[in-house]
Amino acid sequence: MRILVVAAAVLALTAASAQAQGRGRGQPNEGGQKSDNKPKVDEKAYKAALERIPESKEKYDPWSGARPAEPAKKPK
């Protein structure tokens, strides 16, 4: 009898977690209206912000730590 109760509990928990994962995916809004919560982007402000970013004086190398250091050249 205990095995039956434990099996039923495990099955119920599995079904509940599977149901929770499927909620909200692919379902239309209940109100029927599209909610536009995205902020409006002002093109002039965007371009002005891009121009305020200072230019880098040296190039950034993201792989510098992955490559071995270049050996120092010995003068002849």
Rank of each mutant, 00 (worst) to 15 (best):
R2P: 01
V5M: 08
V6C: 06
A7D: 01
A9I: 08
A9Q: 03
A9L: 13
V10G: 12
L11M: 10
L11D: 02
L11W: 13
L13H: 03
L13T: 07
T14P: 02
T14A: 15
A15T: 11
A15R: 08
A15V: 12
A16C: 09
A16M: 11
A16D: 04
S17V: 14
Q19Y: 12
Q19E: 10
Q21I: 09
Q21F: 15
G22P: 00
G22W: 07
G22K: 12
G22N: 09
G22M: 12
R23M: 15
G24E: 04
G24P: 00
G26T: 01
G26V: 02
Q27R: 14
N29V: 05
E30W: 05
E30S: 11
E30H: 04
G32T: 00
Q33V: 12
Q33C: 08
K34T: 03
K34V: 08
N37A: 11
N37W: 13
K38P: 00
K40I: 10
K40A: 15
K40C: 03
V41M: 07
V41G: 02
E43L: 15
E43T: 10
E43I: 12
K44I: 04
Y46M: 14
A48S: 09
A48Y: 02
A48E: 15
A49T: 06
A49E: 15
E51T: 05
E51K: 11
E51H: 05
R52K: 15
R52H: 04
I53T: 12
E55K: 13
E55T: 06
K57Q: 10
K57A: 14
E58L: 09
E58Q: 10
K59N: 03
Y60G: 00
Y60K: 02
Y60E: 05
D61F: 00
D61L: 00
P62C: 00
P62N: 03
W63P: 00
W63T: 07
W63N: 11
G65R: 06
G65Q: 10
G65D: 15
A66W: 10
A66E: 11
P68Y: 02
A69Y: 06
A69T: 02
A69F: 06
E70M: 09
E70S: 08
P71K: 10
A72D: 14
K74P: 08
K74L: 12
K74W: 04
P75K: 15
P75R: 14
K76A: 15
K76L: 15
K76N: 12
K76H: 11
